[in-house]
Simulated assay, not measured.
Amino acid sequence: MARKPFIAGNWKMNLTHLEGIKLVQETAYKLTKAETDKVDVAVIPAFTALRSIQTLIDGDRLPLSLGAQDVAIEDSGAFTGAVSAEMLAALDVRWVLAGHSERREIFGDTDADVNAKVKQILKYGMNPILCVGETLDQREAGETDTVLSHQVTKGLAGISHDDMARVVIAYEPVWAIGTGKTATPEDANTGCATIRATIAQLFNEDVGDAIIIQYGGSVKPGNVAELMAQPDIDGALVGGASLSADDFAALVAAS
């Protein structure tokens, strides 16, 4: 099945709203229509920049979609510092990360938390990017397949076949994020293939064939083409390289 490539730039805790506006303007200028017709492109800024970036994308009709880095489990209430799915949806956010390794490792998000966030994202009409991946210790212990299958299964518990058409999975081996280390294209594809097989088992072969699976982990313009050439890799969740208009545009062009 032909799956349209999807490149998303996760800015993490970087850039003020003014810096974000400048980056999006420069990036959009460098992207050609042929490239954005071929590849779906999203930017995922910090919460404080969402409104500014949304206004820019909508006002200038830029060929980019907007994402958010996290979401609260609750609809509303006394949860100081949290941002609800309804708030994000009101800003025309299309994509929301759930279960990014930094949320799991630093902030203690459990599999149950991640599943609840996926459900909130879908409930409010947005699309989740469910992030899964193994640590270095798990990889060295030969547990990669088990960890990926477990995280996918728990993260998608209670999700319907129909809603799966709105779900993207990002395979991000924890040991390759922000470290400069990248899984070989073959290793990255093996992880994505495990995820695809798990989806097929949980739902059916058609859902497994159709789902977009990104790779995330030190993706750069110099390695993205080789990664994207793999049969089970459909895109990239990009960190550091998304903070440079030159690098991010080059990465999209090479996808």
Rank of each mutant, 00 (worst) to 15 (best):
F203D: 07
G180C: 11
S244K: 07
V39F: 08
G67P: 04
V132F: 09
I73H: 10
M164V: 01
P185N: 04
I233V: 14
V39D: 07
M13A: 07
K181P: 03
A141E: 11
H100C: 10
G99W: 05
G235P: 04
A34C: 01
A116N: 05
A141Y: 03
R139Q: 07
K220H: 10
K117F: 11
F79E: 11
D137G: 05
L66P: 02
L251I: 02
A183L: 02
D40M: 12
I53L: 15
K4H: 09
V93E: 13
I106P: 12
P221T: 03
G216C: 06
T153A: 13
M164L: 14
A241E: 08
A165F: 06
V224Q: 12
R196P: 00
Q214L: 15
Q151H: 08
N14L: 06
L50H: 00
I159E: 14
G217Y: 03
A98W: 05
G216S: 05
F107V: 02
Q201F: 06
V167T: 12
G99I: 03
K30Y: 04
I121H: 13
A98T: 09
G180L: 11
V24G: 11
G59V: 01
G216I: 01
I57T: 10
A34Q: 10
E35D: 13
D137N: 10
A254W: 02
R51C: 12
N189I: 00
A68Y: 08
Q69D: 10
Q25L: 13
D163M: 13
I129H: 07
D163N: 15
L15V: 01
E205L: 10
G191E: 04
A253P: 02
G99L: 06
A90F: 02
D37S: 12
K22E: 15
M13W: 03
V224K: 07
A193D: 13
T198E: 14
L148P: 02
N14E: 09
A200L: 02
R196A: 03
P5L: 09
I57Y: 15
T153N: 06
V24C: 11
A176N: 00
M1R: 06
R61P: 04
D40C: 10
A49N: 03
K22D: 15
W11Q: 01
D92R: 08
D58F: 12
L56P: 05
R166N: 15
Y171N: 08
N127L: 09
